[in-house]
Write a protein that binds this DNA or RNA. Structure first.
Lengths: 253, 253
DNA sequence: CTGCCTTCATAACAAATGTTAAAGAGCCGG
DNA sequence: CCGGCTCTTTAACATTTGTTATGAAGGCAG
């Protein structure tokens, strides 16, 4: 796997090994790259959407807005993340997706998704794996929102992002770029802006993280894990069993 | 559709129309019915699981436990709900599933799931739809946990359960059986038991619901919707577009 | 029928988190 | 380099929610 592979291909490589032909197919799905600027809505709650997107660079959020303006960030989309596979089914999304930073986006159309599932079962397997993982990430966050304290939630999401970014080689040595305002963090963790700030300060005071500009440094990952009660099982960062890959091949007939 | 169809077939009928042959295939998936009693764990966090389950009767919960015992209920499983489609991929579940009441369970094995995707694309489409919907339900709940007050959350879940039970003909005329302790509700809504109780009392005091034993009566659905800021889009209780069904048929080759 | 055991209900008090306000830091365009 | 943004930080205070404790109600096993 070359260092210049797309983030999606890097991410897929952590889960299963594609043939060169399969990689070429994925590259083809990604070939429509275009720049998108911060604050652009890629998908709008309630408005028909019929493409699949692959984020190449930059961060985005999936979010919902209540009618009085309160916002909840469902999840972060990082480079290599795919969106819209399920939206294809529903056509009308129940949430929005917005760029947080400037970035690069590739999109492809439904027929190509169908083609993937018919002709490239291992690519389909990877897409399905990531869609399933998306759910487990959201479920873990719901657990944080329901049962972790503010400090625990903050520690948890820092670790989650670190692990996810590692897979696309955007994190290492305990640090990564976090191009996210505290307001976004607050809307993700179910906190007020002020309390998100307090919580971050506390994480710094007790020596678990250090923040310099947009860079966050995890100073004590072990302690962070204890505070967050972090178990990375929900991220499913491991190889897909051969038997499961085989099932996709059989299912595609 | 006869009144004696399984809840799953009733639920599927709200989304798409199956042929008699397809219904027969689903009935075959469900034929292994067996009774399960309350508190039985159907799936255990961290322990390999390799079947697909279809709940025929009774309620269950998907939940996670933190290492100090705090519990979060991710979602309710109601009659007609399917679990384990994604667990097939991961093999090791990151959450548990437990029966809340006595009930009836059918399970089938991976090869039959593969067969569904290869030979019965419209059945596969329905399964995929429900799996995707599961995610949107969890995302909506995360939104509640993050940004709705206790009262709003309680109103919201009551409406959600009402709409989901309607689809399997277990709710109507504004009321349904809610075989759930307040502790379970608390663990679902991220509240303490005491506060869940307070919140329920308030919902009664302001005349939005009435509770008699295990039966809940929604006295003012319109007001409940306003309080909860409830928009049922996330439940996707409508017909799957023909074009999407067609894509499953094409994908199965 | 009786006596657990679970569930519900409520009160008093504690703690976590939200709100409002204000000021400083950092960045960008003119 | 200035002015106006957005973002961060902090303080003081308000509110929601959690905790602990206790009793009542209801169902079930003996």
């Amino acid at each position: 796997m070359s260092a210049r592979e797309s983030p999606l291909l890097r991410k897929i490589a952590t889960v299963l090994s594609l043939s060169e032909a399969e990689r070429a197919f994925v590259r083809d799905l990604e070939k429509s790259r275009r720049p998108v600027s911060a604050r652009t809505d890629l998908v709008k709650q309630g408005e028909r959407y019929d493409r699949v997107g692959i984020l190449q660079a930059g961060w985005a959020i999936r979010y919902k807005t209540l009618s009085d303006g309160r916002r909840h960030v469902i999840n972060f989309l990082l480079p290599g993340d795919v969106f819209g596979v399920f939206l294809q089914l529903f056509e009308i999304p129940d949430h929005s997706i917005a760029m947080l930073t400037d970035g690069t986006l590739a999109t492809f159309e439904t027929p190509q998704l169908v083609e993937a599932f018919r002709d490239h079962p291992r690519v389909a397997a990877a897409f399905t794996w990531f869609a399933a993982r998306e759910e487990s990430i959201i479920a873990e966050r719901a657990t944080s929102l329901g049962r972790r304290t503010a400090l625990e939630r903050m520690a948890h999401i820092v670790l989650e992002l670190y692990r996810r970014l590692e897979a696309v080689e955007l994190a290492g040595n305990g640090s990564f770029e976090l191009p996210v305002t505290q307001e976004i963090l607050a809307d993700t963790l179910g906190l007020s802006l002020v309390h998100a700030n307090r919580t971050l300060r506390k994480l710094r005071e007790i020596g678990l993280v250090d923040i310099e500009g947009k860079t966050i440094l995890l100073q004590n990952i072990r302690a962070l894990k204890v505070v967050a009660d972090f178990d990375d099982l929900f991220l499913y960062i491991r190889k897909m069993p051969e038997s499961v890959q085989q099932q996709f091949i059989e299912a595609s007939g």
